[in-house]
């Protein structure tokens, strides 16, 4: 590139290799310097703590609630097989999958609808999608408590239309409701971005080639929007699986999920090794799910 831009009078052929090597060197150095703050931050606050978690998960809890780093063992991981832990794990997985699927089913038609609107309407609607972010997540969860709770809005409505008293608070349904509400924007935005990029004429072409509305969706729109489906699903699934705030506020004591259970291990049970093992397993599940999903979507991670 350097060679092309140089004036013709100069001996281009001879100068080129040195110039290009120098330019490439310069580029690399600048790239490294620009990325350095991010690298530093990640190493300090992500990689090192992660290593500490892994190390702790092989340690032993002593009688006083402290942690002995000597005498490494697999006790904490064996404990994962206990029925109570297994139940929490599966319940968390199930609710996270349910949340993701519900988000996907609700968001997809909306994202498609959004992509067919005029740019002005789109922008207004996207702002509406993002408005909830302007309010604290904790506050929004407490709002659900008001809606679902004793004598709450929901009960009043169901009573008014003759369905009797409906109490959803402190149930799995309430947790899923809260999670879907909390993570829906994370599904809508990548879906919208993916669908919006698809050439609308491809759908017309499929209709012209005898596909009915559903076939057109199944064979053209869905495969082409797969990157959005994958990104949105991961963005929903991962935080749902580790959710702490929503299950704590809306789930009550009956529905302990992984997030709350881990917190309990660290703060109440004072079993840091077990908490670390749980955290590590949670992360492993998320990583596996992400990789599998990406591969299935025909993409490399």
């Amino acid at each position: 590139m350097t060679a092309v831009e140089m004036p013709v009078e100069q001996d281009v052929a001879e100068a080129t290799p040195e110039f290009e090597a120098a330019a490439a060197r310069h580029d690399r150095r600048r790239g490294f310097l620009l990325a350095l703050p991010a690298y530093g931050y990640l190493v300090l606050f992500f990689a090192i703590p992660l290593i500490i978690v892994v190390v702790y998960s092989f340690a032993t809890r002593n009688r006083f609630g402290g942690t002995d780093l000597s005498g490494w063992n697999l006790d904490s991981y064996q404990k994962l097989g206990e029925p109570i832990v297994r139940d929490i794990l599966f319940r968390s997985l199930w609710l996270a999958i349910l949340t993701t699927v519900i988000c996907l089913v609700i968001s997809y038609p909306f994202a498609y609808f959004l992509s067919t609107r005029s740019p002005t309407v789109r922008n207004v609607m996207l702002v509406f999608v993002m408005i909830p972010f302007w309010t604290n997540f904790l506050v929004r969860n407490y709002a659900w408590r008001v809606i679902l709770g004793n004598d709450g809005t929901l009960t009043k409505i169901t009573e008014a239309i003759g369905l009797g008293e409906q109490e959803l608070l402190f149930s799995q349904t309430a947790v899923v409701l809260g999670l879907v509400y909390g993570y829906m924007p994370f599904m809508i935005l990548p879906l919208y971005a993916a669908i919006e990029r698809i050439d609308h004429r491809l759908l017309e072409a499929s209709r012209d080639l005898y596909a009915n509305g559903f076939q057109s969706f199944r064979h053209v729109l869905l495969p082409l929007s797969m990157p959005g489906v994958i990104a949105g699903s991961i963005l929903c699934f991962v935080p749902s699986l580790g959710a702490y705030v929503t299950p704590e506020i809306l789930g009550g004591a009956k529905t302990t999920l992984l997030g709350s259970y881990i917190v309990t291990q660290f703060l109440t049970a004072r079993n840091w090794p077990f908490g670390a093992a749980l955290s590590f397993v949670l992360m492993a599940i998320m990583l596996t799910a992400t990789i599998v999903y990406f591969r299935k979507g025909g993409r490399t991670l």
Binding site: R201, L202, E204, A205, S206, D208
Partner: peptide, 13 residues
């Protein structure tokens, strides 16, 4: 009837 679209609109996937 079938159509040959402007810019073809071939399915990229």
């Amino acid at each position: 009837v079938n159509t040959v679209f402007q810019n073809y609109a071939l399915f990229p996937h």
